[in-house]
Design a protein around this nucleic acid. Sequence first.
DNA 1: TTTTGAGTTGTTCGA
DNA 2: GTCGAACAACTCAAA
Length: 486
Amino acid sequence: MTPTLVWFRHDLRVQDNPALHFAVAQGGPIVPVFVLDDAGEWGWVTGAASRWWLHHSLAALDDSLRERGSRLVLVRGDAEKVLWDLVRTTGAGAIAWNRRYELAAVARDSWIEADLNQRGIKVHPFNGSLLHEPHAVANKQGRPFQIFSPYWRHCLTLPVVAPLKMAERNFSAPAQWPSSIALDDLELRPRIPWDGEFRKSWHPGEIGAMQGLRQFISSGLEAYGKNRDIPALAGTSRLSPHLRFGEISPRQIWAAVRAVGQAEGVFPPNQGAAVFLNEIGWREFAYHLLFNFPHTQELPLREEFARFPWAEDRGGHKLRAWQRGRTGYPIVDAGMRQLWSMGWMHNRVRMIAASFLVKHLRLPWRAGADWFWDTLVDADLANNTLGWQWSAGCGADAAPYFRIFAPVTQGRRFDPDGGYVRRWVPEIAALPDTYLQAPWEAPPDVLAKAGVRLGDTYPNPIVDHARAREEALAAFRQLRQQRRLA
DNA sequence: TTTTGAGTTGTTCGA
DNA sequence: GTCGAACAACTCAAA
């Protein structure tokens, strides 16, 4: 039998991997391959934090393939050319992969498919990343949904496929392995070692993903609804980077949550589980939108926002202050420093930090999206685009214009004991709770006692909240007037 | 086709 | 201190 190539992309796992499953079921040799093709991403080259994750995830995948007598072939270059070379050198008769949904990937996949078909190679694409693929879901007019609630209500009526179980046996190897470069030659790891906190925080790979899922189901799921908004707690699943790299599939998550309530026949098993599955739904919705409205990766879905009066930022000082966590608003700074340090930010704080950039500093959402893209280990074009456009108010189902997060109020409400701010902004940790979220309100003796010198050890607020809020509202009014005139 | 109801995550103001 | 209303208008989904 001729070998089957398995092209791994955003599906770096062995279990519940439809493409791998298919190839193994063919009975012939399989050749697992990963291609690093930066040019093929059309500008959305994997960011630095995600490259760190990718390195370790590829190592983990190679390990588990080797346990089954196989291995991962690594190549760098243009995917179309690389795959064709591999087909020729291995004598492969077919190739299998799991679909991607970003514009560049969809385009590339379709011409690779056409090209290989023409050369007599069978191509087998599968759904390995979503509960419901974006092209398979539509409203009653046959159009894509644009509002989450009806979208998700609709999806909940559709069946969810059970995960595939990979049998415990070796994969058949080709007579001769094609040449592979070393993992280090992909140059995914940082040249300067900024990844110390990353190592402490994460375990990339399928095993780490399953451990994370089990731990979350047993100790976090039930209270998820109440704890997920408190960034000082480990109240969220932290599965996002594992999902991003496909080390775990949403179908596996769905099945694991379903299993919790199985004895009682209840689904979802509790309120926390319902809220959690809703978040899985948001990921699905993000893919639905990005696939059906692919231009939103760069442009606002609501066109009038192309004319939003963004503020000037000569020299990029405001953007840099935001990026480095030096805005003077502790909850924002804590979030941005957590991001920089561990490649991840708590979701509640992402909303606060994003709102601050877009509404308080009035800098374009794309600047924030670009920064998140480079610094998040879970950077995902669909989720990132939806999140930023939602925050900016220019996307589907967007935040109303008047929803301008007040950073101090948010900090006091969701970090009441200050555990989060104190962890990530240590220079103000000695302030009492009353002033922790707004150091500029503290009397001089309180500041002195806490060793805080505003404008020196910690910045003064970069903007005044009340004034920034008024200016943002004025900007929205201006947009509305332009619209009326148009 | 027309109509009606609804829309993740908030803040501020004034009674 | 608490609570409800106002903050725009629009578009989408579905009956």
